[in-house]
Design a protein around this nucleic acid. Structure first.
Lengths: 253, 253
DNA sequence: CGCGCCTTTGACATCGGTCAACTTTAGTGG
DNA sequence: CCACTAAAGTTGACCGATGTCAAAGGCGCG
């Protein structure tokens, strides 16, 4: 499946979920696949996972998967495409909280408040597995691997503030952002050196707490330094080691 | 119990856990009390909660509750005192991740990596309930209220990035920080307008991504504007509404 | 084809960081 | 109880990275 999306760009929308394999196999990039494997594909519990999951989409760029204030009933695993989550304060200023790639999960921050605390907006054509949360927690109580998986996903997301931490220069932030995207694409089997930026410079800037102009300038500088090749939103990391060094203070290891 | 700590300041250390009540009651400020109540104090499950909890402390100011890299075995609920969590990057720069007051829980971000990703350091004399996490998740599988409580705690912590979000002025950040502390103290039954700042200006600044001098200047300005009264680390909020207005972009509601 | 949004680049302004000096507080030992 | 020291906090002067404003070009979409 991943080979169909060589640069994170989706093919044309028609009949997009068709090749999802037989009913007892979820998409290979699904964030829950490890839980499924742990439970064993032939166990009766799997039938229940089948019941509580629902394929939704396509959502086109700009469409909402959920909105601030919507009652929380389910979490969503990205099957294809890209999503940004954002909050909009009462003065109307947008604050981008994160970007989510295939295999990643959105909506976990809505469990406690029981309403979504943010919007989720598709950045390109996107598809999801929708998991009913009440059904999911009921299953978790009977299948330890599912419970553990939920705990781990929640805990993992707690460690995601790193890119925003500290008073770091624009260069550090942008370099770390690119390397973070690269490693997340790599973790799902996509290329770690060539991919498409589904989000605008403005979204990147907002997420990194910079001005759009600053992001643009940094990217231009990186290009001049032969660290990257970039044309519009098509990105090629020419010197990942160099970028990693620049962003090291913000990156794991 | 909370009435013993009128301004978040602890009494002298000797025999500090003595008045913890009988064995079937945890401290009233404990983050788990709602789970205990949900399960019912007389249920047999409570005996198991008793088994997996362990009172630890006192830790003196500067002592570590856990360190980066320690294997994850338990989470800690603050029973008294204050804690900061922090990461130290390889250049030795400290990054304060958060402050934790009585009733709040630390260590949740270690579930996924299975090792603590940060240090936890006592800011004053501090006590904890230590919950074995393996025992806790086993119990969660059998007691839905405990599972739900864990999910909610994890999810709640996901929403805690707000104070650091966005490109906001130093005034906004400091005002929001003070109001956030006030509401957290209030939620635990302490005064919302008078409390002790257990952390240094440097820690506050680091947490808010400012320089210590900036925090000092902002606090001085707030004092001149009669928004607060502050003497050393003793704080009195004279105009909470005014502070809330300044920090509104970063505060809930 | 034309409109709007995104992106790039330049000129300038500013908030907050850095450096430095000084004061205050807390801790230690005589 | 006081003297001494180190750390924390305050305040001022200066400077630089980044935001803001502006203009122009490019790209996609209707």
């Amino acid at each position: 499946m991943s080979s169909k999306y060589p640069a994170g760009r989706l093919p044309e929308p028609p009949s997009p979920i068709a090749d999802d394999g037989d009913e007892t196999h979820f998409c290979g990039t699904c964030a829950f696949s490890s839980a499924c494997i742990a439970a064993g594909y032939d166990k009766p519990e799997l039938a229940e996972l089948q019941c509580l999951v629902e394929h939704v989409g396509p959502f086109r760029a700009g469409e909402h998967i959920f909105r601030t204030g919507d009652p929380f009933r389910a979490i969503f695993a990205v099957r294809g495409g890209t999503v940004k989550t954002r909050m909009v304060d009462k003065e109307g200023r947008e604050q981008v909280l994160g970007f989510y790639l295939p295999g990643e999960v959105i909506g976990l921050n809505a469990i406690y408040p029981e309403h979504f605390p943010c919007d989720a907006v598709a950045l390109d054509t996107a598809f999801f597995c929708r998991f009913s949360f009440p059904a999911m927690s009921a299953l978790a109580a009977r299948v330890p691997a599912v419970q553990q998986h939920l705990f781990r996903m929640l805990s993992k997301e707690l460690g995601t503030a790193s890119l925003l931490a500290g008073d770091h220069s624009a260069d550090e932030r942008v370099a770390a952002f690119l390397m973070d995207l690269a490693s997340r694409y790599a973790a799902r089997g996509f290329s770690a050196t060539r991919f498409h930026l589904s989000m605008s410079r403005g979204d990147i800037a907002n997420y990194l707490r910079l001005a759009a102009e600053t992001v643009s300038r940094v990217l231009s500088r990186f290009r001049n330094q032969k660290l990257i090749q970039i044309e519009g939103r098509e990105l090629h990391l020419l010197d990942p080691a160099g970028l990693r060094k620049i962003g090291q203070a913000l990156l794991p290891d």
